[in-house]
Design a binder for these strands. Sequence first.
DNA 1: GCGACAG
DNA 2: ATCTTGTCGC
Length: 221
Amino acid sequence: MKVPEGFRIDLARRVQSRLAERVVEEPLGEFDVVVGLDVAYRGDLGVSVAAAYSVREGKAVGYSCSVNRVVFPYVPTLLSFRELMPMVRALKRLAISYDVVMVDGQGIAHPYGLGIAAHLGVVLGVPTIGVAKSRLFGDVVGDRLVDPRSGKVIGAVVRCRKPLYVSIGNRITLDDAVKVVKELCADSSMPLPILLAHNKANELKRRAATTAFDKWGEASC
DNA sequence: GCGACAG
DNA sequence: ATCTTGTCGC
């Protein structure tokens, strides 16, 4: 799949830069329910899942999903244009309320300061954390990710089984983001909420609907 | 021009 | 991310 005809990458950059200015850094405070978001693919179908995990109860307390036609290719730094809508749709279907959302991808550790976790957080005005399995932007200095242009800290390297690149998405501080991730790193390679979403998405994609798509390319699941 | 590059 | 079964090893 190629970038849609007429898509202006230069304008996409400006949108990212402007939305990045809206990222809010503030303490998270008390929290219980953490939602994990992930998307699995099958051909041109994208299956997104929101998994709600209660720290207090120590178990999953709810799931929601959305099946969508993929409309944009994977392009480093433009992941939002491929996965943001599917993720938002799954999250909006979640019945239970939550305190913070963990997204499989970067927060502000992005060349324009707006990885998918920050993008989703700003658009929905909700607290988000970016948790990536690999690095996109920033220099690794000890256990920190530093912006090579400004020298400012934009993320942290947190070790679960393998190193994870954690950065704030919105309405949280890096210290709180790291605290949340560490607290949910059980024994897997990804924090529990994201792992639950990942597994559920892979389970659902095997029987993804081939019918009932609406005009926006979304189907039930 | 060359190298890097979330999922 | 996805295409893909069994298999070698801690």
